[in-house]
Simulated scan of single mutants.
Amino acid sequence: MFFMQDHHGFSPSHHAPGHRYRSWDGRDDCQYRDHHDGRGPKFHHDKVEIGHVSGRATADWWEWVLSYPEAENPQLDTTGELADLGDFGRTFFVAGTFSGDVERSFSVDYGQTLVIPLINVVSFATEPDDTAASLREDAAEFIDAVEDLTLIIDGKVYSDEKLFDFRTKSTVFDAIVPEGGVLPAGTYDPVVSDGYWIKVKGLSPGENTIEFGGSLTDDEGNTFEVNITDNVTVVADRHWSDWS
């Protein structure tokens, strides 16, 4: 079964009961760390660096999104009011949308790395014979149909030719969904994700605009499209200088 990206957010102080949030370096705490492992593409424009997002980080992002009830979910946020739920210190998880257009406004600290889902899908077990391998195949079939990707940062347009290098398959993970969540409450295991992700470093202090998304048409002719505009204020007097 599939569950497409949409809208919502989270913060370390809003854990779902009994859930765990892993840091990217494997520690069981809430301080996400942004260590690029040397794999995958990255490129620069002025001071902005666009980089690869690890499979572990995309799993963490989905655990984060699925941990919130609908009323507090950043994926469903239409203004940016819940965006700070994605603030993990050095790393800031940016919410997507389950489909359609949305515009949000929020602030981040200078030096934070933004993790952005251009377009993705999550696939989770609903039948006894579902396996991580079969779920990966289903998710890959969906993402294989992506026709175009969009990333525009402060007027700079990044081409499809570059963005199609940023596909990431998640590690296998489990997700705990609370009552009132975007799925029926319970623990889902296994879960996998596939899609296109980028991380952004080096936004200038002050006002920035990031537009991102993508589209695809499935075998039945149904179109799935994501178009997001984030008006991001980078606050210079709050900063993370140790990116590594």
Rank of each mutant, 00 (worst) to 15 (best):
L203I: 05
Y21I: 15
R39G: 05
E63F: 05
P178I: 10
G80V: 12
L118R: 02
F173P: 04
P178W: 14
D194C: 08
H19C: 11
G181M: 07
S23C: 11
V65S: 12
A83W: 05
P69H: 13
V48H: 07
G89L: 02
T91G: 03
E147G: 13
S193F: 05
T58H: 02
V157C: 09
R39Q: 11
A139T: 06
E70F: 00
P178L: 10
A59W: 04
C30T: 15
G206C: 03
P41M: 11
V53W: 01
N222R: 09
G80T: 14
D218Q: 00
P12G: 06
T97F: 00
P41H: 10
G213P: 05
V115Q: 00
P128E: 10
A57S: 10
A71D: 11
N208A: 02
P190Y: 04
I198D: 09
S215A: 12
E81V: 09
F166Y: 13
Y196E: 07
G96T: 12
P69R: 13
F124I: 03
E127S: 11
A95S: 13
N120R: 01
D34A: 15
V192P: 04
P41L: 11
W64C: 15
D154Y: 02
S123A: 15
S105P: 01
D130M: 08
A57C: 13
A57M: 09
P12Q: 07
F98A: 09
N222A: 13
Y32E: 09
D25I: 12
V192H: 00
H19I: 15
S159D: 10
F2N: 10
V200D: 01
I50E: 07
F92W: 06
M1Y: 04
N208W: 01
T97W: 01
H19R: 11
S23K: 01
E141G: 12
W24E: 15
H19F: 05
W24G: 15
P69V: 11
T187G: 00
G86M: 06
V177M: 03
N120I: 01
L216E: 01
L149A: 03
W64L: 12
V192S: 03
R238I: 09
E70V: 14
G155Q: 05
T113P: 00
F98D: 06
D242L: 14
T229E: 03
I143S: 05
E179P: 06
V172D: 14
R104C: 03
V182C: 08
V192L: 03
E72V: 08
V121D: 01
K201D: 02
L82H: 13
P184Q: 00
